[in-house]
Each structure stands twice: as C-alpha cells, then as structure tokens.
Design a protein around this nucleic acid. Structure first.
Lengths: 330, 330
DNA sequence: CAGCCATTCTATAACGTTGCATATCGCGCG
DNA sequence: CGCGCGATATGCAACGTTATAGAATGGCTG
C-alpha cells in the first residue's frame, strides 16, 4: 500500500480511503490511486485488514457432515448467496456430537468468522445460550426453537401434512412413516410426524403407532425399516420417508421384494434432493424451499453482523414449501 | 496476551514462546503461563498470528460445485484429514468456468490460504503455471497431467479397464459407454475411455464408436443418452457410465423402458458414491480410493507448505482402486 | 578463577491495515 | 474582508502477535 501511495503521489491513508469508498475524495485523486493500484497489481492484505477492523468477512457454517446430500446442497447455495454479498463461508463438520458443536460455537473457529449459521443437533438451547458469545448466530433447522435465537427453518409440519394429504387423496389409508418414534413431537422428525398425524385426523383416518418406524435418516436404514415392516406382516399401502434418503432406501427394498410402485405401495419423501427426481420411479416429495432458506438466513445473519435495524428478540423465519408429485405417488 | 503475561509474572514473549512450544522454557515457568491462560480463558488471536507469521493454517479447495456428490464426499474427507493435521479447509466453487478458476488461483481467496488443492476443469496447464503464484498447489483430478505440478489422482484407465473386463467376463460384448466422445484420450472421460478400449482389445472385441455417447456427467444426461441409444436402435447388452451419476440416470431410463437389469442390460458405473450401493439394483462400480486421495493430497500439500524435503519436480500420486461388484452387473 | 557455552528469558520492532483526530483549502455570507 | 463550514487529504497510533537479537543466569572446562 505504501508503494501505491508513493506511485499515486498521495498519503497511505488516502489509498486506504479509496479502497474503503470514503465519501470525500476528488474523482481525479481516486483515479490516480486506482491507476497506481492497477499498475502495481496491488491487492489489499486481508489479514491485516481483519486484524485492524475486527471483521473477517467470513461466515461460519456448522453442520454435521458435508457428505450428506441435503447439507452439501445447502452449503453450496449458502456459499453462492454469501459470495454475492461479499462474504465467504467456512464450513465446520460437527458429526452431530455435542463436543464438536460446542467447540465450533466457542473455539478458534468462531474467531475466524463474523457470524455463525448453526445447525445444532446435539446441544440444547440452554447450553447454546450460555456459550453463544457476542457475535451473531442464526440457527438452521428444527432442533432449537427458542425465542432467544434467530432461526430460519422450513414448514415441517405443514409440508408433512400436505404430502400426507396427497397420499390420502390418492386413496391410501395405511401410510407407514419412516424416521421417527411414535411419540416424537420435537425436532424435524417430531414436527413432520405431527404434520402427518394432523393430516390423518383431518381425513378421519385413525393413527396407528405400528406404522411408525424409528430409523436413522440414511438409505440403508430406510431399507431396513421397510424390510422390518414387511417381515412383521404389518399391512401398509404407502410409505412416507421423513426425508428423501430414507424414502429412496425404502423404495429400493420394496422393489427388491418385487412390489409394484406405486400400485402396491406409494412412496413419498421430504427434501426434494436432486436424486429424488431421477429415482426410478421418480420420488414424490416436498421441496422445503432451500433457496429461500439460504437467502433468508444469509440475509438475516449479515443484517445482524452489520448492525442493521432488526428485532432485538430472535427472529423466526419459515420458508415456504412446494409439493412435487411424481410417479412414486401420483 | 498482555494480561496473561502479567498474571504469570513473565514477559509477553515468554507467553508467546509457551504457545509456540519453544524449546528452552523451564517447566515451572511453562506451568505458570498455562495456569494463567486457563484462569483467564485466554485464546490466541488467529488473525494477529496470521499477520505476523504470514501463515493462515487454512488450505484452499477449489472445485466446480459442492453439491455434486463426489465433490461433497471428497470435501468432507479432506476437511477431516486436514483437521487432524491442524489445518482448516476453505472451499471455493468455480462452476467449472475459467474466470472463476483463475480468480481462485490468484485472487483474495489465495491470500487466505497457505496452499491450494485445485481441481481445474477449464484452465490449461500453461495458464495455471503462469498464475500459480508462490504458494504450493496440488492438483486433483485428471485435467492436468504436467510434470510441473504436483498431482494426486486415481488410476482412471486401469480401473475402467478392470470394470470393462468384468463386463466382458460376464459375457457382454456390446458395451455402451456414456460420458465421453469416441475420440477422447485426455481428462477423466478420455482416460476412462482409453481403459475401456484397452480391455476390449485385450479380449479381442472390436471397438464400435457408435456405442460411445457423449453427455454431461449428470443423472438426466445419462438418462437421455441411453434413451437416444434405444431410440436409434443400436444394440447393446451393457452400459458403462463413466461416473455413477450417469450410470444411475441410465439405469433409471432402462427400467422405465421395461428392460430387466441385469438380464437384458448390465450397468456399471465409476466412483462408488454412497448412492450406488443403495440403488435398485445396486450399482456395480469401481471405488477410486477417495480416502487415499484425501490423505495423500493433504499430506503432500502440507509437506510442501511446511517445507519438508520433497522432490523439486511435480510429484504424481495415483491412488489404488477397488472393483465393487453388485447386482446391476454381477 | 576466568572464559565459554547452553539454557532461559526479555525488549523492541515489525506485519499491513484502519479509526481518530486534525490539517488544509476554497467558497459563500455577513 | 474575515469567519465559518463543507470538502478533501493526511499523520499517528493501534489491532495482537511473532522474529530478531540480545541479556541474564549458571555450570563446566581448562
């Protein structure tokens, strides 16, 4: 920067002012500085800028595992949106363990970022509140729904109700649910199950806990879950996987067992990952507005960072959803 | 750090020395400092450290799109491996465009990292060499194979030959290839096609260019490609998708058309993404040693960064592969 | 017992930027 | 004509750390 100042015949501070779009600079001066910068190929040192300004222009993103398709897509979009606002995204994988989540919340990772997009899975609201520090945090997902925190999430219950209603409208009456325990009411599984139950009730169909199978949200777990149902002789004419991955695993198992989809069993999922569209048969699912989630969460976080006028209390944003009717449950 | 020094009754520099594992410190002194650090909850300021030392302890990872499953899995592993060595990974998406790749190579992104893991798709070796800068760069993938660069890649040709040989051993003679042009010899498509041709030749089966279909490495492209083959009446008894995604798209289309897999057509892929295992039927593919790629590339890059004794010339590493025989091509 | 070296600790000066306060200039107004 | 004020440019200090050089201590050697 010294060299630029000398080349442009101005002071160090003037160069800095040009770079920071300071208001009161004569166009001629500004041009001289810009020319010198171009000629010397100067690039501002971001580390020094960070040290002095206390800002890194990086956003932290904490999620359990980047290789999970939903998170990979979300991360990709968040990076694109953040990039458009002049921020980078630094990703940290927590493995959904409390220890890692805590260290992401207060460790060195935090120092490197101006704000955090946090998908807590293990920590509870109290612990997070105690260790959130002073920089802004925006929660993603459903694990935390606490007025103290900003939260961007999806309409889990409404979307699950909509897709259940769609299955019911198609004449299905015994809809197996994979990925929640019958008593769940909180977090993604519980909220989606609640939506399912609401739709059943609205249609006057009785809820049967035997149709609810708890399993991890992974392909193989979905396959095993549906295998368990088949083996135990429980009747069902539809499967609602609480995410697409589980639904796809279930579909795989149903096909292997020689069942016809959707005639024998209709299958529906949740998330609308890219894969759902190209599955065979294509998976009926619900798109939870990931684009909107990405945009609103980045927007909210940056507003907090840059001190925009926003509510003092935690803001709760719910993105819209869209039913995607495909061949697995027409 | 000042507070710690005062609390421990030592100089600022001694605290710094303790943090940097300086050799000549009396255990008692070290303990006093550590106690003070613990008591005050002090954490070193990483930005200041970076400014002074010129190191950020971050590695850059440039890839086209994080939402592509292969890259998502690779990124996830790289982050884990790097974390174990005390580095973080900062991801930059290039969209496979030359402009973005170039800006990742020389723009501010570069400043933030001590070294680069670079998956070039658009830039050529000459351009990269001209703009590589002074910090270490390790290439990933096949686009660049130039002695000037360090490169970590997979045995594309050998693995493709092995899986082709497997199809041939199963009695298949007309194996369609999706994802390359008949004349390709370079990059992932070309290398894999070369392996395919080598296996045909070794088995005395004639190469038919009509069986080679160029398409993007995406699901829908794979589906369209195989649809084109079917519609044009070209006979084939097997499909080799040059990556899993293409193969899965093809499989989808074949199933929709009422073909029996693997009886009518065997299908094989390349990459062994998680999805391949749970497809229906499960996809025969080749696992290109991603774990090894992650470990060797991080190792190599960190060695270069920390100035370990390594070859002056570019080092080329090829990870091993493993055939995964599943139901789509038993 | 002086001299030397290994060990242990410290003072000072950077790293490259921006916040704050201030200097300078020219113009309109009383 | 002088004062005040907006516009423009600048100087200095500080952000929190580490590199460099050197000071202090003590033990060993000749």
């Amino acid at each position: 920067m010294n060299d630029v100042a000398r080349a442009a015949g101005v002071s160090l501070k003037t160069v800095s002012n040009v770079l920071n779009d300071y208001e009161f600079i004569r166009p001629a001066t500004k041009q001289k500085v810009l020319d010198a910068i171009a000629e010397l190929g100067y690039e501002a040192n971001l580390t020094a800028r960070s040290l002095r300004s206390g800002k890194t222009r990086m956003l932290g993103l904490v999620l359990s595992d980047l290789s999970i398709p939903y998170y990979a897509e979300l991360a990709s979009r968040l990076m694109t949106v953040a990039g458009g606002r002049g921020y980078r995204v630094l990703v940290e994988q927590s493995g959904a363990t409390a220890a890692h989540e805590l260290s992401a919340l207060q460790g060195p990772f935090r120092q490197l970022t101006d704000g955090l997009l946090f998908t807590p899975l293990a920590l509870d609201a109290g612990t997070i509140a105690a260790h959130r520090g002073t920089k802004p945090v925006v929660m993603l997902g459903e694990h935390i729904a606490d007025p103290r925190f900003d939260l961007v999430t999806m309409k889990n219950a409404e979307a699950a109700a909509a897709i259940t209603a769609h299955l019911l409208a198609g004449g299905r009456r015994r809809i197996a649910v994979l990925g929640a325990a019958a008593g769940d009411t909180a977090d993604s599984p519980g909220l989606r199950l609640t939506g399912y139950r609401a739709a059943l009730e609205a249609a006057g169909v009785e809820f049967d806990p035997a149709l609810v199978v708890q399993c991890d949200w992974r392909r193989d777990a979905g396959a095993s879950a549906v295998a368990g149902l088949l083996d135990s002789g429980i009747r069902f004419d539809a499967v609602f996987g609480l995410n697409d991955t589980v639904a796809l695993g279930a579909m795989h198992e149903l096909l292997i067992r020689g069942l016809k989809l959707p005639d024998d069993v209709a299958v529906a999922g949740f998330d609308d990952i890219d894969e759902a569209r190209f599955a065979s048969p294509a998976l009926t699912t619900v798109s939870p507005g990931m684009e909107e989630i990405a945009e609103r969460s980045i927007q909210l976080l940056i507003d907090r960072i840059e001190g925009a006028e926003t509510a003092a209390e935690g803001l709760h944003v719910e993105a819209g959803f869209e039913l995607k009717v495909r061949d697995s449950a027409p």
